[in-house]
């Protein structure tokens, strides 16, 4: 099993009270499964993804991903886990503005154990002709494709996408989702994203 969550809870303190963002979440996700996480705002989607990806920690329960127990991992171990195991795609791209498309992807490739070919990945997302451009010279959809290339380049066991189309128009969203599906099949493992197929204002 790639991901195993057992009675996972996460609470946040709000003023003098506390708020449980996740309560007793138990689920297992095998390899090569494409999972969509749906739910209203505040339902815990991002918290769940962040815990699976080692960005956040659970307050109760156990979390195992690729056999690694994240529940008791140190910050150093979590950093190593994220670097070796997880590819992230965020809603707002988080690209490095003063690096070109190729350099943004190269940064991740340089620290990966078994990176894929940069040219092949850029070609797969249709950005090879734009490899020398800077993020500010790209559209939102193109920037998200860079973000996807950066996540995929290290050939991660787990690809997590948190609202990857949240800031894109419908047509561009469809293209990005198609790329996400392609990137998870047939060779790579599950992708989780929240709020799939959101028709943002065109």
């Amino acid at each position: 099993m790639l991901i195993e969550l057992n009675k996972v809870g996460r609470r946040y303190h709000m003023g003098q009270g506390e708020f449980w963002a996740l309560k007793d979440v138990t689920l297992s996700i095998p390899e090569s499964q494409l999972v969509t996480i749906l739910g209203p705002s505040g339902s815990g989607k991002s918290t769940l993804l962040n815990i699976m990806g080692g960005i956040d920690h659970a307050d109760t329960g156990t979390v195992r991903v690729t056999g690694v127990d994240l529940s008791h991992a140190s910050e150093r171990d979590l950093t190593q886990f994220r670097r070796d195991t997880v590819g992230f795609v965020f809603q707002f791209f988080n690209l490095i503005p003063n690096l070109t498309v190729r350099e943004n992807v190269e940064v991740t490739a340089d620290i990966a154990k078994k990176p894929l070919s940069i040219d092949e990945v850029l070609d797969a997302v249709g950005l090879l002709p734009m490899a020398d451009r800077f993020p500010s010279e790209l559209s939102g959809g193109e920037q998200q494709r860079v973000s996807l290339a950066r996540a995929v380049i290290k050939n991660p066991s787990l690809l997590l996408a948190d609202e990857p189309t949240g800031s894109l128009d419908f047509v561009t969203s469809r293209d990005i989702l198609r790329l996400l599906v392609q990137s998870t099949r047939p060779t790579t493992p599950p992708s989780c994203w929240s709020r799939i197929m959101l028709p943002s204002p065109i």
Binding site: V25, L38, S41
Partner: peptide
């Protein structure tokens, strides 16, 4: 196309099912 849908509500799993189909925008709850 997705293999599986996990629907959350108030931090709990409300639904977890295998689907093997496209998720439509109308299904998304804000």
């Amino acid at each position: 196309m997705t293999d599986r849908v996990i629907r959350l509500r108030s931090g709990e799993v409300e639904e977890d099912r295998l689907v093997g189909r496209l998720i439509k925008a109308e299904e998304v709850t804000w």
